[in-house]
């Protein structure tokens, strides 16, 4: 055997032993990650199942449900309203700059109303509520978890799923469609204001174009999306808070996870629901 082939043989041997050492570690790490992911999915599924069950089974806590309806619905109105207003205004401006190139200005009303009702109002309201409400839910429940208030509730014979989780899930699911309906109106109005006062559209023709193109299904699909997004925001806020780890860092991480996971899941479900409604 020549010196060169000997060197190659040694290199091959080293590479083989390196791979033999590395492979089990890589497989172990991969396996651990997959198992942890599956465990998390299972845990979340059980949490969702229990939460939904407790929404329907008595006892109910009307005062808690009312408090959450106000917190999630009423106090989110300014955020959702402002978002919808500026979105409608920007949409009209942007459409105008694009559509004038094709002499298609008459389509602006249709673009504004369809974009707002089908997509932008539900998605942006969902994301804004995820930031405002999802974070607040996770922080409040997470703090209750780390200060043993949730354990205290159990020892007082009150099920935390009924008292804390169910009211938030019910309120989230019911209030987001209402917020989105308000957002639809404000968003379309934003586009109308820009079209009339900035782009010199005729008031009557803009409104008639808006009404002509709008169908009931456009609004309903947005409201169904909103209900699903409201459920997602509330359930993920509750889940992350309920499973918060100890200390301020744990509550902070739970809050971040609640907002990030809700935002991603909202975008995912937006695609799936759009596929269901309009494909």
């Amino acid at each position: 055997m020549t010196a060169k082939s000997e060197k190659i043989a040694i290199d091959v041997h080293h590479t083989a032993s390196f791979l033999t050492d590395l492979l089990p570690d890589t497989c172990q790490a991969l396996g651990r990650t997959i198992l942890a992911f599956l465990q998390r999915v299972g845990q979340l599924s059980i949490f969702v199942g229990k939460s939904v069950m407790h929404c329907f089974l008595p006892p109910y806590f009307p005062s808690q449900i009312w408090r959450q309806l106000v917190d999630i619905g009423y106090y989110s109105l300014p955020v959702v309203g402002m978002t919808a207003l500026f979105t409608g205004m920007v949409l009209a401006l942007q459409s105008y700059t694009g559509f004038t190139r094709f002499n298609a200005e008459s389509a602006i009303a249709a673009v504004v109303v369809l974009s707002v009702t089908r997509e932008l109002a539900p998605v942006l309201a969902g994301l804004m509520v995820a930031g405002r409400v999802g974070a607040a839910i996770a922080a409040e429940i997470g703090t209750m978890r780390v200060t043993e208030q949730i354990d205290a509730m159990s020892t007082l014979s009150v099920n935390p799923f009924k008292y804390l989780i169910a009211p938030r899930v019910i309120a989230g699911t019911l209030m987001l469609p209402i917020l989105v309906l308000v957002g639809d109106i404000i968003g379309v109005y934003g586009g109308y204001v820009i079209a009339i006062y900035r782009l010199d559209f005729s008031e009557g023709s803009y409104l008639s174009q808006t009404w002509d193109i709008l169908e009931t299904m456009d609004v309903i699909s947005g409201l169904v999306k909103a209900a699903v997004f409201g459920f997602i925001v509330a359930i993920l806020g509750c889940y992350n808070g309920f499973n918060s780890q100890r200390g301020a860092q744990g509550v902070g991480a739970a809050t971040t996870n609640a907002v990030v996971s809700a935002s991603i899941v909202i975008l995912l479900f937006n695609y799936l629901l759009t596929q269901v409604f309009f494909s």
Binding site: F61, E148, D151, A152, T155, L156, S157, V158
Partner: peptide, 27 residues
């Protein structure tokens, strides 16, 4: 059962009397 927690575990969103009466009212 009754339980006194190490850190008190009082519900900070409720008044003191509501804390004490929590189990009586809701359970």
């Amino acid at each position: 059962f009754g339980m006194l927690f190490q850190g008190g575990a009082l519900f900070d969103s409720m008044r003191v009397w509501e804390n004490v009466a929590f189990g009586l009212i809701h359970a």
